[in-house]
């Protein structure tokens, strides 16, 4: 804007020789055109800068999404190259009302409920414990965060061995040696998988909570102490409110991690026993890679996408309102 010379400015410099009408007219037209042009340029530049990521999104997110929606209308053949059969809404309706899908949905909900709150509470507990100025506290901080360094596969294999009904240490401790494996027990399998998941995510939860605790200003705690607040009151009325952005972040990330859980289920139970650990993501994988049924998997994928979308929106609307970002 500043570059544009207003007609008054020209007049002020008394360009007497130039005809009085022309410069203002020219200037006016330039003034009218330039912002528009500049805006167009800016928009082009913006899109130009966005283009690489848009391309990546288009190829790896938008196209697959559209393709999934398209595929969900077809009965796909077990082999590529064979014809697919248009099924309209019948397949969608059949899948969405099927026992398998509803079961997977329920298992997914249970799994999130088992893992997210537990992980949050344990992570916070460990973080509060490790937030003391004690000798050797660094050692404990390292231990508490160490599960971050394990992969899902490693954690699962460790627990798989510990839970083995013939030779596992846990089976021995709980007096289940020689009995049916916990992972084969429909009542306990999901719980067992959840325990592994909580254990594996604990390191991350601990680190996130610790970081949040570090950010709570000491003078605030000092002030509350002077006001006579005990440890519980301080936690309840000072630390937790100050931690709310961290908690919010942990809940969202934890939920997404749980919704995406795959490795531990694949290794520990393969979705069994009797589909009691067959979360949606695993069910989709099963459809694609074991049943080779892309059509059915597509319906479930689109459903999972919509569910996650709604779920995230609700989380943001409900939780963000209670989050304090002021320090």
């Amino acid at each position: 804007m500043s570059v544009t010379a207003p007609p008054e400015h020209l007049d002020a410099h008394g360009r007497a020789e130039s005809p009085p009408e022309r410069p203002p007219a020219r200037a006016r037209s330039r003034a009218a055109r330039s912002p528009r042009r500049r805006r167009t340029l800016e928009v082009l530049l913006a899109y130009g800068l966005l283009l690489p990521s848009l391309l990546v999104f288009a190829v790896f997110v938008f196209y697959p999404l559209v393709r999934q929606i398209y595929l969900s209308f077809f009965l796909t053949p077990p082999f590529p190259g064979e014809p697919k059969h248009y099924a309209g809404l019948s397949q969608i309706q059949q899948v969405l009302t099927s026992h398998d899908f509803l079961n997977s949905l329920w298992v997914t909900v249970l799994f999130v409920l088992y893992t997210v709150p537990a992980g949050l509470v344990l992570g916070l507990l460990l973080a509060v414990l490790a937030h003391q100025q004690l000798r050797g506290i660094r050692f404990f901080r390292t231990v508490f965060s160490s599960t971050v360094a394990t992969s899902v596969a490693v954690a699962s294999v460790i627990f798989f061995t510990l839970l083995n009904p013939q030779i596992g240490l846990f089976s021995y401790w709980f007096g289940r040696t020689g009995q049916l494996s916990v992972l084969d027990d429909p009542r306990l399998a999901l719980l067992a998988v959840s325990v592994v998941t909580v254990w594996q995510n604990l390191g991350l939860a601990f680190i996130v909570m610790s970081a949040g605790l570090q950010a709570v200003p000491d003078d605030l705690l000092e002030a509350s102490r002077v006001d006579g607040a005990g440890p519980w009151t301080r936690l309840r009325h000072v630390i937790l409110p100050m931690l709310s952005p961290t908690l919010f972040f942990a809940i969202v990330v934890g939920s997404i991690l749980s919704l995406e859980a795959f490795g531990q289920i694949d290794i520990l139970t393969s979705g069994g026993p009797l589909q009691h650990t067959n979360v949606l993501v695993y069910a989709i994988y099963d459809q694609v890679f074991n049943q080779n049924n892309q059509g059915r998997a597509a319906v479930m994928t689109v459903a999972l996408f919509l569910i996650t979308l709604v779920f995230t929106l609700i989380q943001i609307r409900l939780l963000e309102r209670r989050v304090t970002y002021e320090r």
Binding site: N164, P165, Q166, I167, G178, L180, S181, L183, S270, P273
Partner: peptide, 15 residues
């Protein structure tokens, strides 16, 4: 003895 689905398929032999 029910050895279940046992993904490694070895528990019945270990038994």
């Amino acid at each position: 003895l029910a050895t279940g689905s046992d993904p490694n398929n070895i528990d019945h032999l270990i038994a």
